[in-house]
Design a binder for these strands. Structure first.
Lengths: 192, 192
DNA sequence: CTGGCGGTGGCACCGAGTGCCGCTTAGCGT
DNA sequence: ACGCTAAGCGGCACTCGGTGCCACCGCCAG
C-alpha cells in the first residue's frame, strides 16, 4: 500500500484482465500480455512473478490490512472481531465492483487461479487463528483456533462466491452476506 | 477403489514418493521419475495427468466414498452425519500411517501441492453443502449450506495438519482430533 | 566527461505437459 | 499355427511458463 504500484504495472494489469475476459485465461499467453502492454516479456515477469498474480495481485495487500484491522478490534469474541475486520477491509467503492466481479469470476472458473488464491489465504488463516487464540486465552496452535482461522476464510470464500453468483448484487449485499456467514459460524451448525 | 490401479502405477507412485522424500518435490523431474520407474516419460503422463497427482492420487477416491458414507447416515444433523462419514472414510490401518504421513508432509510444505489439493476439495465442499441442505430442508445454494460445506473441509484440513504436526500421533489420535474439530463446528465460535 | 546504477529486454535455457506417430505385444478368430 | 487388430507404449517435437545471464540505455554524481 505504501507507494502506488507503478503506472506501468497498473496498465499491464488492466490490459491483461481485458484479454483474459475476451480470450480466456489459459488461451492468453504471457507473450501476448507483454506485447499488449508494450513491454518485453522479461519485464512482464519483473512486475508479476506469475501470470496468475496478475489476477490475484491486490488480494494480498489485504493481509496486512486484515492484521491491522484485527489489532484494532477490542473484545473477547473473535467472530465479532473477524466480522468487523472483514467489513472494514472489504469496503469497495461502487466503481470498483465491476473489476472485483471480473476477478472473482476468473478465480472461480480457472482452477489454477482458485488454487493459487487458497495458498495466499493460508496467511490469513493463521493470522485469524492467532487472533482468536489471543482473545480466548488459548494456544494459537490449539485445534479450535486453527479450525476457526480456516473456517473464517472458508466462510469468506462462500460469501464471495454467493455474491458473485448474483449478477446485480451491490456492496450492501456483500455486507449482508458477510453478516449471515459470520452468524452461522458464531452460532454453529447444530440443529436448524 | 473399485479396481486396484495397475501394479505399474503403484510402483511408479512408490518410487516417486521415495524420490520426493529424498530429493524434494521440485528438485525431482518427471524424467527422473520415469527412468526410476522404468517407464517412458510419455507413459508416465498416461498414468498421472500431472506430477502433482502422484502425491494426491488416492485422495479423490475419497469423494465417492464420502458421498456414499453421507448417504448412509440418517438423522437431521449434518455435523453428526459429516463426522460419522469422515470417521468411516479415514479408517487407516497402522501400516498405512507412515505413507499417509509422508503425503501430508509433502502437501503441507509444497505450496503447489497444497493448492492442487484444495481444488480437489471443492467437490467435497459441494457434496457436504448439498447434504446439509437436504437435512436442513434448505436450498443447497443457501449461504449457510455453502459455508457449512467449506467449513467442514477447512476443519478437516486443520485436523490433518494438527495430526501431522504431532510425530507420534496414531489413528486413535486422528479420531480424537476429528471429534474435537466437529464439536467446534457444531457449537460455534461465540464466546469461550 | 566518466563511472556507477537501476530498469529494461533480448537470448538461451529448463521443466511440465501435449499431439502425433510408429512400434511392440497380447489377444482374437479362422 | 497364422495373421489381423487393437491397445498400450514411448520416442520426438513442440508449446508455454518461468529463470539466469548479460548487454544496453538513461540518469545522476563526482
Amino acid at each position: 500500500m505504501a507507494t502506488t504500484r507503478s503506472a506501468r504495472a497498473q496498465r499491464l494489469e488492466n490490459v491483461a484482465l481485458e484479454l483474459f475476459a475476451s480470450q480466456g485465461f489459459d488461451e492468453t499467453t504471457v507473450d501476448e500480455l507483454a506485447v499488449a502492454g508494450g513491454v518485453g516479456r522479461r519485464t512482464f515477469f519483473r512486475y508479476f512473478p506469475t501470470k496468475l498474480d496478475v489476477v490475484l495481485g491486490e488480494l494480498d495487500d489485504g493481509l496486512a490490512a486484515l492484521v491491522a484491522a484485527l489489532a484494532g478490534e477490542r473484545g473477547d469474541d473473535p467472530v465479532a472481531a473477524a466480522r468487523a475486520a472483514f467489513l472494514a477491509i472489504n469496503h469497495y467503492a461502487a466503481a470498483e465492483l465491476p473489476a472485483l466481479r471480473r476477478r472473482l469470476g476468473l478465480i472461480e472458473d480457472v482452477p489454477e487461479l482458485a488454487a493459487r488464491a487458497t495458498v495466499r489465504y493460508r496467511d490469513w488463516e493463521s493470522a485469524l487463528a492467532t487472533d482468536a487464540a489471543r482473545r480466548w486465552g488459548e494456544d494459537p496452535a490449539s485445534l479450535r483456533a486453527q479450525v476457526f482461522g480456516r473456517a473464517v476464510v472458508a466462510a469468506m470464500r462462500a460469501v464471495f462466491s454467493a455474491w458473485h453468483a448474483r449478477p446485480e448484487a451491490d456492496a450492501d449485499a456483500l455486507g449482508a452476506l458477510v453478516d449471515e456467514a459470520f452468524d452461522a459460524l458464531s452460532r454453529g451448525f447444530a440443529s436448524p
